[in-house]
């Protein structure tokens, strides 16, 4: 499925089937083994193994000095990671839920994102923050949000959203090599998803989207778990004679303009699908980007956005499903868009 993933994996690298969580853990394992400066920080990431068992048993391999359980102090913990990154460490800070990053906004937005600029480039902040995000777990309004667009609004931060185990590992390793703060939004429902993952060290470039499926009739730009929903919809659409091109954005800051614009120039129709609240979300940025570019002159139908409903994530499972785009929504929107073919 990874047709144009743009990974830098060596061709001879063997692959194994790993879950998304296992792939992330493998990336952290490789980094901890290779670089003394790498430390993991977060709540209950030690013997507990992380709320979603992503760090697993790494604490037994690397000890509590490098796999550090923090107190429940999101602001302080994130700030410690920022300070450590400024002074030589390569911390990977895990928020137990990305919702809790709201407690640490000060350190992420005022400090991590701005220190380099405020100091005229005299220092950089190579911190990696992992953000378990998204709905679908019945955890309701304060444990299910998709806040990535908030952070993508801040110059100085980089924001990625891997959708596959391969990218989850490759993007984490790339984030560790990046001199600037990188926030990784991992969808909680993807943790158990399996996929082929190259062994050893490789990088998935930050700022590069992947075309997951080629098509000619419309472009679906999707992020995170929505990539899989878009692919499922695309398969159904193909049976109806509608060939959708599915672009997995992978990085939402900086956005891969060329891949998105190139696809829109080809298909002339754009559907944006993302789980974050629709208004002022990623889709607005993608739409504006297309509207402001020469790709505008290739549009043959209005742009359509499918995003989260304008409400907190509800508890009831039916309501919870209804609050984020689902495959039938994508099908309906895509058919309407493609139906404008004349």
């Amino acid at each position: 499925m990874n047709m144009d993933a743009g990974t830098l994996a060596r061709p001879e690298q063997e692959t194994r089937e790993l879950s998304y969580a296992e792939a992330i853990r493998e990336a952290m394992d490789i980094a901890l083994a290779a670089d003394e400066r790498v430390v993991l920080m977060g709540e209950d990431i030690g013997v507990y193994g992380g709320a979603f068992q992503v760090t697993g048993d790494l604490v037994h391999k690397y000890g509590t000095d490098r796999v550090i359980d923090t107190p429940i102090s999101e602001l302080g913990g994130a700030g410690v990671a920022v300070g450590a990154a400024m002074t030589g460490l390569r911390p990977i800070f895990e928020f137990q839920f990305s919702d809790f990053a709201t407690l640490a906004m000060e350190q992420i937005v005022n400090q991590a994102a701005k220190v380099r600029y405020m100091l005229g480039g005299a220092v950089s902040v190579p911190v990696v923050m992992r953000m378990p995000a998204g709905s679908g777990t019945g955890a309701a309004a304060q444990h299910s949000q998709s806040l990535e667009a908030w952070f993508a609004h801040v110059p100085g931060l980089k924001v990625v959203q891997p959708s596959t185990p391969e990218d989850a590992k490759g993007l984490l390793l790339a984030a560790l090599e990046d001199p600037d703060p990188v926030l990784i939004f991992e969808h909680k429902l993807l943790y158990k998803m399996k996929g082929e993952v190259p062994a050893g060290h490789y990088l998935t470039p930050i700022g590069k989207a992947a075309i997951r499926r080629k098509g000619t009739d419309l472009t679906i730009v999707a992020t995170s778990i929505m990539v899989h929903k878009a692919l499922e919809a695309a398969q159904t659409l193909a049976g109806e004679g509608i060939e959708a091109e599915v672009v997995d954005l992978r990085t939402i800051r900086p956005i891969d303009r060329e891949t998105v614009l190139g696809s829109v120039r080809k298909t002339s129709r754009l559907l944006c699908v993302y789980e974050g609240v629709k208004t002022l979300g990623i889709g607005a940025e993608i739409s504006a980007m297309v509207a402001e570019s020469d790709a505008f002159d290739y549009l043959d139908a209005p742009i359509v956005r499918l995003g989260g409903a304008e409400c907190p994530i509800p508890y009831n499972p039916d309501l919870e499903r209804a609050a984020v785009p689902q495959v039938p929504d994508i099908l309906q929107a895509a058919r309407a868009l493609a139906g404008e073919r004349v």
Partner: peptide, 13 residues
């Protein structure tokens, strides 16, 4: 400005 037919950007191009 003025009354123009409705047309998509691609059609106009």
């Amino acid at each position: 400005r003025g009354t123009l037919p409705r047309a998509t950007p691609k059609a106009r191009r």
